[in-house]
Simulated assay, not measured.
Amino acid sequence: MQTDVLLDRFLADLAPLAPVAVWAHGSLAGGDYQEGRSDLDLIAVLDRLGPRTVWRLAKLHARLRAEPLSGQLHCTYLTPAADMGRRHLTWAHEELFKRPVTPVTRRELHSFGRVLLGKPPPDLLPPVSDRELTDFVCRDLRDFWRPALGNAPLWTRDVWVDLGLLTFARASVTLREGRLVSKREALELLPGLGAPMEVVEDIRRRRYGWPGPPVENRAALTRGYLGPAIDELVAAYD
Protein backbone atom coordinates (compact mmCIF):
# COMPACT_ATOMS: atom_id res chain seq x y z
CA MET A 1 0.00 0.00 0.00
CA GLN A 2 1.15 3.53 -0.74
CA THR A 3 0.10 4.45 2.80
CA ASP A 4 2.66 2.07 4.30
CA VAL A 5 5.37 3.40 2.01
CA LEU A 6 4.61 6.97 3.07
CA LEU A 7 4.52 6.11 6.78
CA ASP A 8 7.81 4.21 6.54
CA ARG A 9 9.44 7.16 4.78
CA PHE A 10 8.04 9.61 7.34
CA LEU A 11 9.30 7.57 10.29
CA ALA A 12 12.71 7.15 8.69
CA ASP A 13 13.04 10.87 8.02
CA LEU A 14 11.86 11.69 11.55
CA ALA A 15 14.34 9.28 13.19
CA PRO A 16 17.26 11.79 13.40
CA LEU A 17 15.05 13.90 15.70
CA ALA A 18 14.78 10.94 18.10
CA PRO A 19 10.98 10.98 18.55
CA VAL A 20 9.67 9.77 21.90
CA ALA A 21 6.50 8.46 20.23
CA VAL A 22 4.50 8.58 17.02
CA TRP A 23 0.78 7.71 17.05
CA ALA A 24 -2.01 7.49 14.50
CA HIS A 25 -5.57 8.50 15.29
CA GLY A 26 -8.66 9.12 13.15
CA SER A 27 -9.65 6.61 10.49
CA LEU A 28 -6.18 5.06 10.24
CA ALA A 29 -6.46 3.93 13.85
CA GLY A 30 -10.23 3.45 13.98
CA GLY A 31 -10.52 0.95 11.13
CA ASP A 32 -12.27 3.04 8.45
CA TYR A 33 -9.24 4.21 6.48
CA GLN A 34 -9.79 4.63 2.72
CA GLU A 35 -6.50 5.00 0.85
CA GLY A 36 -6.50 8.10 -1.31
CA ARG A 37 -9.59 9.53 0.40
CA SER A 38 -8.83 9.51 4.14
CA ASP A 39 -6.33 11.74 5.87
CA LEU A 40 -3.35 10.27 7.71
CA ASP A 41 -3.78 11.83 11.15
CA LEU A 42 -0.63 11.56 13.26
CA ILE A 43 0.82 12.86 16.52
CA ALA A 44 4.58 12.91 17.08
CA VAL A 45 6.17 13.57 20.47
CA LEU A 46 9.65 15.12 20.41
CA ASP A 47 11.88 16.07 23.33
CA ARG A 48 12.13 19.66 22.14
CA LEU A 49 10.55 21.93 19.56
CA GLY A 50 12.94 24.86 19.27
CA PRO A 51 13.44 26.97 16.12
CA ARG A 52 16.04 24.59 14.64
CA THR A 53 13.74 21.59 15.10
CA VAL A 54 10.85 23.46 13.49
CA TRP A 55 13.09 24.29 10.52
CA ARG A 56 14.09 20.61 10.20
CA LEU A 57 10.45 19.54 10.30
CA ALA A 58 9.57 21.99 7.55
CA LYS A 59 12.38 20.56 5.40
CA LEU A 60 11.25 17.00 6.19
CA HIS A 61 7.70 17.65 5.00
CA ALA A 62 8.95 19.49 1.91
CA ARG A 63 10.92 16.38 0.95
CA LEU A 64 7.86 14.19 1.46
CA ARG A 65 5.90 16.10 -1.17
CA ALA A 66 7.31 13.75 -3.82
CA GLU A 67 5.57 10.77 -2.19
CA PRO A 68 2.04 9.74 -3.23
CA LEU A 69 -0.57 10.64 -0.59
CA SER A 70 1.75 13.17 1.09
CA GLY A 71 -0.99 15.78 0.89
CA GLN A 72 -3.12 13.63 3.19
CA LEU A 73 -0.44 13.36 5.89
CA HIS A 74 -1.25 15.62 8.85
CA CYS A 75 0.99 15.56 11.91
CA THR A 76 0.84 17.53 15.15
CA TYR A 77 4.04 17.81 17.17
CA LEU A 78 4.10 17.76 20.98
CA THR A 79 6.69 17.65 23.72
CA PRO A 80 6.31 15.19 26.63
CA ALA A 81 5.10 17.91 29.02
CA ALA A 82 2.92 19.75 26.50
CA ASP A 83 0.06 21.86 27.80
CA MET A 84 -3.12 20.46 26.22
CA GLY A 85 -4.82 23.83 26.54
CA ARG A 86 -2.45 25.41 24.02
CA ARG A 87 -2.15 25.19 20.24
CA HIS A 88 0.64 22.97 18.91
CA LEU A 89 2.83 22.91 15.82
CA THR A 90 1.06 21.04 13.03
CA TRP A 91 1.79 20.13 9.45
CA ALA A 92 -1.43 19.94 7.41
CA HIS A 93 -2.68 21.21 4.06
CA GLU A 94 0.92 21.58 2.91
CA GLU A 95 1.94 24.11 5.58
CA LEU A 96 3.04 24.50 9.19
CA PHE A 97 0.72 26.25 11.62
CA LYS A 98 -0.57 25.76 15.18
CA ARG A 99 -3.79 24.14 16.35
CA PRO A 100 -5.00 22.42 19.53
CA VAL A 101 -5.10 18.70 20.17
CA THR A 102 -8.80 18.41 20.94
CA PRO A 103 -10.36 16.28 23.68
CA VAL A 104 -11.86 14.10 20.93
CA THR A 105 -8.39 13.41 19.51
CA ARG A 106 -7.01 12.66 22.95
CA ARG A 107 -9.90 10.30 23.74
CA GLU A 108 -9.32 8.56 20.39
CA LEU A 109 -5.66 8.10 21.23
CA HIS A 110 -6.46 6.67 24.67
CA SER A 111 -9.21 4.41 23.30
CA PHE A 112 -7.78 3.05 20.06
CA GLY A 113 -4.67 5.04 19.11
CA ARG A 114 -2.26 3.12 16.90
CA VAL A 115 1.33 3.21 18.15
CA LEU A 116 3.71 3.58 15.22
CA LEU A 117 6.77 4.20 17.38
CA GLY A 118 7.74 4.50 21.04
CA LYS A 119 5.56 4.93 24.10
CA PRO A 120 1.75 4.47 24.07
CA PRO A 121 -0.54 7.51 24.48
CA PRO A 122 -1.54 6.81 28.13
CA ASP A 123 2.12 7.16 29.14
CA LEU A 124 2.32 10.74 27.84
CA LEU A 125 -1.16 12.21 27.40
CA PRO A 126 -3.51 13.15 30.25
CA PRO A 127 -6.87 11.33 30.19
CA VAL A 128 -10.05 13.07 29.07
CA SER A 129 -12.97 13.12 31.50
CA ASP A 130 -16.51 12.55 30.25
CA ARG A 131 -17.39 16.11 31.26
CA GLU A 132 -14.49 17.58 29.30
CA LEU A 133 -15.46 15.54 26.25
CA THR A 134 -19.14 16.54 26.48
CA ASP A 135 -18.28 20.22 26.90
CA PHE A 136 -16.01 20.18 23.87
CA VAL A 137 -18.48 18.35 21.61
CA CYS A 138 -21.30 20.76 22.53
CA ARG A 139 -19.06 23.78 22.04
CA ASP A 140 -17.89 22.51 18.63
CA LEU A 141 -21.46 22.01 17.44
CA ARG A 142 -22.72 25.28 18.89
CA ASP A 143 -19.83 27.63 18.08
CA PHE A 144 -18.45 26.18 14.85
CA TRP A 145 -20.91 24.01 12.96
CA ARG A 146 -24.12 25.91 13.77
CA PRO A 147 -22.81 29.32 12.61
CA ALA A 148 -21.26 27.70 9.51
CA LEU A 149 -24.75 26.74 8.32
CA GLY A 150 -25.37 30.42 7.64
CA ASN A 151 -22.65 30.43 4.97
CA ALA A 152 -24.57 28.78 2.13
CA PRO A 153 -21.71 28.59 -0.45
CA LEU A 154 -19.67 26.34 1.88
CA TRP A 155 -22.31 23.62 1.65
CA THR A 156 -21.97 23.25 -2.10
CA ARG A 157 -18.64 21.51 -1.39
CA ASP A 158 -18.36 17.77 -0.72
CA VAL A 159 -16.19 18.18 2.36
CA TRP A 160 -18.72 20.34 4.21
CA VAL A 161 -21.68 18.08 3.48
CA ASP A 162 -19.73 14.96 4.43
CA LEU A 163 -18.05 16.28 7.56
CA GLY A 164 -21.08 18.23 8.73
CA LEU A 165 -23.40 15.23 8.74
CA LEU A 166 -20.81 12.71 9.93
CA THR A 167 -19.63 15.00 12.72
CA PHE A 168 -23.21 15.44 13.89
CA ALA A 169 -23.82 11.69 13.95
CA ARG A 170 -20.59 11.04 15.82
CA ALA A 171 -21.35 13.82 18.29
CA SER A 172 -24.80 12.34 18.91
CA VAL A 173 -23.31 9.00 19.93
CA THR A 174 -20.61 10.59 22.07
CA LEU A 175 -23.09 12.74 23.96
CA ARG A 176 -25.71 10.02 24.41
CA GLU A 177 -23.48 7.01 25.02
CA GLY A 178 -20.05 8.40 25.91
CA ARG A 179 -18.24 6.54 23.14
CA LEU A 180 -16.53 7.39 19.87
CA VAL A 181 -17.57 5.88 16.54
CA SER A 182 -15.96 5.70 13.11
CA LYS A 183 -17.20 7.61 10.10
CA ARG A 184 -18.52 4.34 8.66
CA GLU A 185 -20.64 3.70 11.75
CA ALA A 186 -21.77 7.33 11.79
CA LEU A 187 -22.94 6.99 8.20
CA GLU A 188 -25.01 3.95 9.13
CA LEU A 189 -26.58 5.86 12.03
CA LEU A 190 -27.61 8.96 10.08
CA PRO A 191 -30.92 7.60 8.70
CA GLY A 192 -32.04 6.74 12.23
CA LEU A 193 -31.23 10.30 13.27
CA GLY A 194 -33.58 11.68 10.61
CA ALA A 195 -30.96 12.80 8.08
CA PRO A 196 -32.15 13.08 4.45
CA MET A 197 -31.60 9.66 2.87
CA GLU A 198 -30.65 11.00 -0.56
CA VAL A 199 -27.78 12.94 0.99
CA VAL A 200 -26.67 9.98 3.11
CA GLU A 201 -26.53 7.82 -0.03
CA ASP A 202 -24.66 10.59 -1.84
CA ILE A 203 -21.98 10.53 0.90
CA ARG A 204 -21.83 6.74 0.77
CA ARG A 205 -21.33 6.72 -3.01
CA ARG A 206 -18.51 9.25 -2.89
CA ARG A 207 -16.80 7.81 0.19
CA TYR A 208 -16.83 4.20 -0.95
CA GLY A 209 -16.77 4.62 -4.72
CA TRP A 210 -20.31 3.53 -5.51
CA PRO A 211 -21.84 4.74 -8.80
CA GLY A 212 -24.80 7.09 -8.83
CA PRO A 213 -25.94 10.60 -9.76
CA PRO A 214 -25.22 13.58 -7.50
CA VAL A 215 -27.98 15.12 -5.39
CA GLU A 216 -28.69 18.56 -6.85
CA ASN A 217 -30.29 20.09 -3.75
CA ARG A 218 -28.05 18.44 -1.16
CA ALA A 219 -26.81 21.77 0.27
CA ALA A 220 -30.32 22.92 1.13
CA LEU A 221 -31.28 19.48 2.45
CA THR A 222 -28.19 19.28 4.64
CA ARG A 223 -28.53 22.79 6.06
CA GLY A 224 -32.26 22.36 6.63
CA TYR A 225 -31.66 19.19 8.59
CA LEU A 226 -28.56 20.15 10.57
CA GLY A 227 -29.82 23.46 11.94
CA PRO A 228 -32.67 22.16 14.12
CA ALA A 229 -30.85 18.85 14.76
CA ILE A 230 -27.83 20.64 16.25
CA ASP A 231 -30.04 22.99 18.26
CA GLU A 232 -31.97 20.10 19.79
CA LEU A 233 -28.89 18.02 20.60
CA VAL A 234 -26.92 20.86 22.17
CA ALA A 235 -29.92 22.00 24.23
CA ALA A 236 -30.15 18.52 25.74
CA TYR A 237 -26.51 18.31 26.85
CA ASP A 238 -25.01 21.81 27.06
Rank of each mutant, 00 (worst) to 15 (best):
146 R>D: 11
81 A>T: 15
228 P>T: 06
26 G>Q: 04
177 E>Q: 14
221 L>R: 01
189 L>K: 12
132 E>Q: 10
32 D>P: 00
139 R>V: 01
47 D>M: 12
67 E>Y: 14
34 Q>P: 01
116 L>D: 08
97 F>W: 10
141 L>Y: 06
44 A>M: 11
113 G>E: 05
116 L>E: 14
109 L>R: 00
102 T>R: 07
84 M>D: 02
206 R>N: 12
155 W>M: 04
200 V>P: 01
39 D>F: 14
87 R>H: 11
174 T>G: 05
110 H>Y: 12
235 A>P: 01
159 V>S: 07
165 L>T: 08
187 L>T: 12
24 A>T: 08
203 I>N: 03
182 S>E: 02
39 D>C: 09
172 S>M: 00
142 R>F: 05
223 R>D: 07
20 V>L: 08
3 T>K: 02
63 R>M: 09
26 G>S: 04
71 G>V: 11
49 L>P: 04
130 D>I: 06
138 C>S: 13
118 G>C: 07
134 T>G: 13
221 L>S: 00
108 E>D: 13
90 T>H: 14
220 A>P: 00
45 V>L: 04
202 D>I: 01
154 L>T: 03
51 P>Y: 11
130 D>S: 13
154 L>I: 02
49 L>G: 04
102 T>F: 05
103 P>L: 07
49 L>Q: 03
53 T>V: 15
219 A>M: 09
42 L>I: 08
111 S>F: 00
125 L>T: 10
102 T>S: 15
233 L>H: 03
73 L>A: 10
69 L>E: 10
52 R>E: 15
28 L>H: 03
129 S>L: 07
